[in-house]
Design a protein around this nucleic acid. Sequence first.
DNA 1: TCCATATATCGATGAACGTCAATATCTAGG
DNA 2: CCTAGATATTGACGTTCATCGATATATGGA
Lengths: 117, 117
Amino acid sequence: MTTVKSAPTMLATIAEPCCGITTPGGLTREQAETSAVLLKAVADPVRLRLLSIIRDSEGGEACVCDLTPAVGLAQPTVSHHLKVLAEAGLIEREKRGTWAWYRLVPGRLDDVRAIFG
Amino acid sequence: MTTVKSAPTMLATIAEPCCGITTPGGLTREQAETSAVLLKAVADPVRLRLLSIIRDSEGGEACVCDLTPAVGLAQPTVSHHLKVLAEAGLIEREKRGTWAWYRLVPGRLDDVRAIFG
DNA sequence: TCCATATATCGATGAACGTCAATATCTAGG
DNA sequence: CCTAGATATTGACGTTCATCGATATATGGA
Protein backbone atom coordinates (compact mmCIF):
# COMPACT_ATOMS: atom_id res chain seq x y z
CA MET A 1 0.00 0.00 0.00
CA THR A 2 1.31 3.42 -0.88
CA THR A 3 -1.09 5.45 1.21
CA VAL A 4 0.32 7.35 4.15
CA LYS A 5 -0.88 6.44 7.58
CA SER A 6 -3.21 9.32 8.28
CA ALA A 7 -3.03 10.76 11.77
CA PRO A 8 -0.84 9.05 14.44
CA THR A 9 2.64 7.55 14.30
CA MET A 10 4.66 10.50 15.39
CA LEU A 11 6.99 8.07 17.08
CA ALA A 12 9.90 7.38 14.79
CA THR A 13 11.34 4.47 16.73
CA ILE A 14 9.32 1.32 16.40
CA ALA A 15 9.35 -2.08 18.01
CA GLU A 16 12.36 -4.31 18.02
CA PRO A 17 11.17 -7.86 18.67
CA CYS A 18 14.05 -8.57 21.01
CA CYS A 19 17.21 -7.23 22.67
CA GLY A 20 17.46 -4.16 24.86
CA ILE A 21 16.84 -1.60 22.15
CA THR A 22 15.68 1.70 23.54
CA THR A 23 11.97 2.21 23.12
CA PRO A 24 10.36 5.59 22.45
CA GLY A 25 9.84 5.94 26.17
CA GLY A 26 13.53 5.88 26.98
CA LEU A 27 13.02 2.78 29.10
CA THR A 28 14.70 -0.40 27.88
CA ARG A 29 13.15 -3.80 28.31
CA GLU A 30 15.80 -4.68 30.86
CA GLN A 31 15.21 -1.54 32.89
CA ALA A 32 11.48 -2.15 32.88
CA GLU A 33 12.02 -5.76 33.89
CA THR A 34 14.38 -4.85 36.72
CA SER A 35 12.05 -2.17 38.06
CA ALA A 36 9.07 -4.50 37.82
CA VAL A 37 10.86 -7.15 39.90
CA LEU A 38 11.46 -4.62 42.67
CA LEU A 39 7.91 -3.29 42.45
CA LYS A 40 6.39 -6.77 42.58
CA ALA A 41 8.16 -7.29 45.89
CA VAL A 42 6.33 -4.34 47.44
CA ALA A 43 3.05 -4.75 45.54
CA ASP A 44 1.51 -6.92 48.24
CA PRO A 45 -0.50 -5.73 51.25
CA VAL A 46 1.14 -8.16 53.66
CA ARG A 47 4.65 -7.20 52.62
CA LEU A 48 3.80 -3.50 52.82
CA ARG A 49 2.66 -4.02 56.38
CA LEU A 50 5.74 -6.05 57.23
CA LEU A 51 7.96 -3.24 55.95
CA SER A 52 5.91 -0.72 57.88
CA ILE A 53 6.04 -2.70 61.11
CA ILE A 54 9.77 -3.32 60.85
CA ARG A 55 10.49 0.35 60.14
CA ASP A 56 8.43 1.56 63.08
CA SER A 57 9.74 -0.99 65.56
CA GLU A 58 12.13 -0.09 68.35
CA GLY A 59 15.67 -0.15 67.05
CA GLY A 60 14.32 -0.45 63.53
CA GLU A 61 14.17 -4.21 63.74
CA ALA A 62 11.60 -6.90 64.44
CA CYS A 63 11.67 -10.67 64.80
CA VAL A 64 9.43 -13.23 63.15
CA CYS A 65 7.83 -14.13 66.47
CA ASP A 66 6.41 -10.60 66.64
CA LEU A 67 5.69 -10.14 62.95
CA THR A 68 3.66 -13.34 62.68
CA PRO A 69 0.91 -12.41 65.17
CA ALA A 70 1.04 -8.81 63.93
CA VAL A 71 -0.06 -9.70 60.42
CA GLY A 72 -2.26 -12.59 61.51
CA LEU A 73 -1.00 -15.20 59.05
CA ALA A 74 0.64 -18.59 59.44
CA GLN A 75 4.32 -18.58 60.32
CA PRO A 76 5.46 -20.22 57.04
CA THR A 77 3.55 -17.58 55.12
CA VAL A 78 5.27 -14.75 56.97
CA SER A 79 8.61 -16.46 56.49
CA HIS A 80 7.88 -16.63 52.77
CA HIS A 81 7.07 -12.93 52.51
CA LEU A 82 10.20 -12.00 54.43
CA LYS A 83 12.24 -14.07 52.02
CA VAL A 84 10.72 -12.23 49.05
CA LEU A 85 11.55 -8.88 50.64
CA ALA A 86 15.07 -10.03 51.48
CA GLU A 87 15.71 -11.29 47.96
CA ALA A 88 14.61 -7.91 46.64
CA GLY A 89 17.26 -6.35 48.86
CA LEU A 90 14.70 -4.47 50.91
CA ILE A 91 15.39 -6.10 54.27
CA GLU A 92 18.24 -8.01 55.86
CA ARG A 93 18.29 -10.82 58.37
CA GLU A 94 20.33 -11.24 61.53
CA LYS A 95 20.03 -14.37 63.58
CA ARG A 96 20.47 -13.82 67.32
CA GLY A 97 19.99 -16.96 69.34
CA THR A 98 16.83 -18.71 68.31
CA TRP A 99 15.30 -15.58 66.85
CA ALA A 100 15.69 -14.01 63.45
CA TRP A 101 15.68 -10.21 63.38
CA TYR A 102 14.85 -8.26 60.28
CA ARG A 103 15.56 -4.61 59.50
CA LEU A 104 15.35 -2.37 56.46
CA VAL A 105 18.34 -2.09 54.16
CA PRO A 106 19.18 1.64 54.30
CA GLY A 107 18.32 3.52 51.12
CA ARG A 108 16.79 0.60 49.33
CA LEU A 109 13.28 2.06 49.50
CA ASP A 110 14.69 5.12 47.76
CA ASP A 111 15.31 2.92 44.74
CA VAL A 112 11.59 2.19 44.58
CA ARG A 113 10.76 5.87 44.75
CA ALA A 114 13.43 6.65 42.15
CA ILE A 115 11.65 4.50 39.57
CA PHE A 116 9.12 7.27 39.21
CA GLY A 117 11.69 10.03 39.30
CA MET B 1 1.56 -20.63 81.17
CA THR B 2 2.85 -18.12 83.66
CA THR B 3 6.38 -17.78 82.29
CA VAL B 4 7.30 -14.54 80.63
CA LYS B 5 8.25 -14.61 77.00
CA SER B 6 12.00 -14.19 77.19
CA ALA B 7 13.49 -11.78 74.67
CA PRO B 8 11.32 -10.23 71.94
CA THR B 9 7.77 -8.87 71.98
CA MET B 10 8.42 -5.24 72.52
CA LEU B 11 5.40 -4.55 70.40
CA ALA B 12 2.44 -3.97 72.65
CA THR B 13 -0.21 -4.01 69.97
CA ILE B 14 -0.97 -7.46 68.65
CA ALA B 15 -2.96 -8.89 65.80
CA GLU B 16 -6.63 -8.26 65.41
CA PRO B 17 -8.04 -10.99 63.20
CA CYS B 18 -10.21 -8.53 61.30
CA CYS B 19 -11.24 -4.89 60.88
CA GLY B 20 -8.99 -1.95 60.23
CA ILE B 21 -7.22 -1.88 63.55
CA THR B 22 -3.95 -0.04 63.43
CA THR B 23 -0.98 -2.37 63.40
CA PRO B 24 2.33 -1.58 65.11
CA GLY B 25 3.57 -0.23 61.79
CA GLY B 26 1.00 2.52 61.65
CA LEU B 27 -0.35 1.09 58.42
CA THR B 28 -3.90 -0.25 58.53
CA ARG B 29 -5.01 -3.24 56.51
CA GLU B 30 -7.07 -0.99 54.30
CA GLN B 31 -4.19 1.38 53.64
CA ALA B 32 -1.91 -1.52 52.79
CA GLU B 33 -4.55 -3.01 50.52
CA THR B 34 -5.16 0.29 48.73
CA SER B 35 -1.46 0.92 48.23
CA ALA B 36 -0.92 -2.63 47.00
CA VAL B 37 -3.64 -2.25 44.37
CA LEU B 38 -1.92 0.84 43.00
CA LEU B 39 1.50 -0.80 43.14
CA LYS B 40 0.28 -3.95 41.38
CA ALA B 41 -0.80 -1.75 38.47
CA VAL B 42 2.76 -0.52 37.95
CA ALA B 43 4.54 -3.73 38.95
CA ASP B 44 4.64 -5.04 35.39
CA PRO B 45 7.38 -4.45 32.81
CA VAL B 46 4.96 -3.88 29.94
CA ARG B 47 2.90 -1.36 31.87
CA LEU B 48 6.02 0.47 33.02
CA ARG B 49 7.10 0.81 29.41
CA LEU B 50 3.64 1.96 28.35
CA LEU B 51 3.73 4.69 31.01
CA SER B 52 7.21 5.65 29.94
CA ILE B 53 6.32 5.82 26.25
CA ILE B 54 3.16 7.83 26.88
CA ARG B 55 4.97 10.31 29.10
CA ASP B 56 7.78 10.86 26.59
CA SER B 57 5.52 11.15 23.57
CA GLU B 58 4.85 14.44 21.82
CA GLY B 59 2.03 16.27 23.54
CA GLY B 60 2.23 13.74 26.38
CA GLU B 61 -0.14 11.37 24.67
CA ALA B 62 0.01 8.26 22.52
CA CYS B 63 -2.51 6.12 20.69
CA VAL B 64 -2.88 2.35 20.76
CA CYS B 65 -1.80 2.07 17.15
CA ASP B 66 1.63 3.37 18.15
CA LEU B 67 1.85 1.67 21.54
CA THR B 68 1.12 -1.77 20.16
CA PRO B 69 4.15 -2.04 17.84
CA ALA B 70 6.27 -0.22 20.41
CA VAL B 71 5.89 -2.93 23.04
CA GLY B 72 5.72 -5.76 20.52
CA LEU B 73 2.64 -7.52 21.90
CA ALA B 74 -0.76 -8.37 20.46
CA GLN B 75 -3.26 -5.53 20.32
CA PRO B 76 -5.73 -7.09 22.79
CA THR B 77 -2.87 -7.52 25.25
CA VAL B 78 -1.91 -3.85 25.01
CA SER B 79 -5.55 -2.88 25.35
CA HIS B 80 -5.75 -4.99 28.49
CA HIS B 81 -2.71 -3.34 30.07
CA LEU B 82 -4.03 0.11 29.25
CA LYS B 83 -7.27 -0.78 30.94
CA VAL B 84 -5.43 -1.84 34.08
CA LEU B 85 -3.53 1.44 34.14
CA ALA B 86 -6.70 3.42 33.52
CA GLU B 87 -8.59 1.64 36.30
CA ALA B 88 -5.74 2.50 38.65
CA GLY B 89 -6.23 6.14 37.73
CA LEU B 90 -2.78 6.42 36.19
CA ILE B 91 -3.82 7.21 32.63
CA GLU B 92 -6.92 8.56 30.94
CA ARG B 93 -8.43 7.89 27.55
CA GLU B 94 -9.70 10.26 24.88
CA LYS B 95 -11.25 8.92 21.73
CA ARG B 96 -10.60 11.07 18.66
CA GLY B 97 -12.05 9.62 15.50
CA THR B 98 -11.11 6.00 15.23
CA TRP B 99 -8.12 6.33 17.49
CA ALA B 100 -7.89 6.18 21.26
CA TRP B 101 -5.34 8.51 22.84
CA TYR B 102 -3.93 7.92 26.28
CA ARG B 103 -2.12 10.35 28.54
CA LEU B 104 -0.96 10.39 32.15
CA VAL B 105 -3.30 11.63 34.84
CA PRO B 106 -1.38 14.58 36.34
CA GLY B 107 -0.03 13.90 39.81
CA ARG B 108 -1.17 10.33 40.00
CA LEU B 109 2.37 8.95 39.85
CA ASP B 110 3.13 11.11 42.86
CA ASP B 111 0.71 8.95 44.79
CA VAL B 112 2.89 5.94 44.04
CA ARG B 113 5.98 7.74 45.21
CA ALA B 114 4.14 8.98 48.29
CA ILE B 115 3.58 5.42 49.48
CA PHE B 116 7.24 5.31 50.43
CA GLY B 117 7.43 9.07 51.10
C1' DT C 1 21.84 -36.08 75.22
C1' DC C 2 17.11 -35.01 74.95
C1' DC C 3 13.44 -31.76 74.63
C1' DA C 4 11.10 -27.41 73.59
C1' DT C 5 11.01 -23.42 70.85
C1' DA C 6 11.92 -20.51 66.65
C1' DT C 7 12.48 -20.32 61.91
C1' DA C 8 12.98 -22.17 57.22
C1' DT C 9 11.77 -25.34 53.56
C1' DC C 10 8.72 -28.47 51.01
C1' DG C 11 4.50 -29.86 48.63
C1' DA C 12 -0.08 -29.03 47.52
C1' DT C 13 -4.04 -26.18 46.33
C1' DG C 14 -6.84 -22.50 44.68
C1' DA C 15 -6.80 -17.78 42.93
C1' DA C 16 -4.93 -14.22 40.12
C1' DC C 17 -2.38 -12.89 36.13
C1' DG C 18 -0.38 -12.33 31.24
C1' DT C 19 -1.07 -13.61 26.79
C1' DC C 20 -3.36 -14.58 22.52
C1' DA C 21 -7.03 -15.76 18.81
C1' DA C 22 -11.57 -14.86 17.78
C1' DT C 23 -15.10 -11.76 17.91
C1' DA C 24 -17.73 -7.62 18.88
C1' DT C 25 -18.14 -2.59 18.66
C1' DC C 26 -17.45 1.77 16.90
C1' DT C 27 -16.07 5.28 13.40
C1' DA C 28 -15.00 7.34 8.91
C1' DG C 29 -15.45 7.23 4.02
C1' DG C 30 -17.38 5.82 -0.27
C1' DC D 1 -25.85 1.09 3.77
C1' DC D 2 -21.71 -1.16 3.39
C1' DT D 3 -16.92 -1.74 3.88
C1' DA D 4 -12.38 -1.07 6.09
C1' DG D 5 -9.72 0.00 9.93
C1' DA D 6 -9.01 0.87 15.09
C1' DT D 7 -10.00 -0.52 19.58
C1' DA D 8 -12.42 -3.22 23.18
C1' DT D 9 -14.24 -7.49 24.96
C1' DT D 10 -14.57 -12.47 25.52
C1' DG D 11 -12.90 -17.08 26.40
C1' DA D 12 -9.22 -20.13 26.92
C1' DC D 13 -4.64 -21.60 28.39
C1' DG D 14 -0.38 -21.84 30.93
C1' DT D 15 2.18 -19.55 34.53
C1' DT D 16 2.90 -17.30 38.70
C1' DC D 17 1.55 -16.40 43.34
C1' DA D 18 -0.36 -16.48 48.25
C1' DT D 19 -1.50 -19.52 51.56
C1' DC D 20 -1.34 -23.42 54.55
C1' DG D 21 -0.05 -28.06 56.89
C1' DA D 22 3.64 -31.00 57.48
C1' DT D 23 8.29 -31.39 58.08
C1' DA D 24 13.19 -30.22 58.48
C1' DT D 25 16.80 -27.51 60.72
C1' DA D 26 18.89 -25.02 64.32
C1' DT D 27 19.46 -23.20 68.97
C1' DG D 28 19.29 -23.01 73.98
C1' DG D 29 18.25 -25.17 78.32
C1' DA D 30 17.55 -29.11 81.58
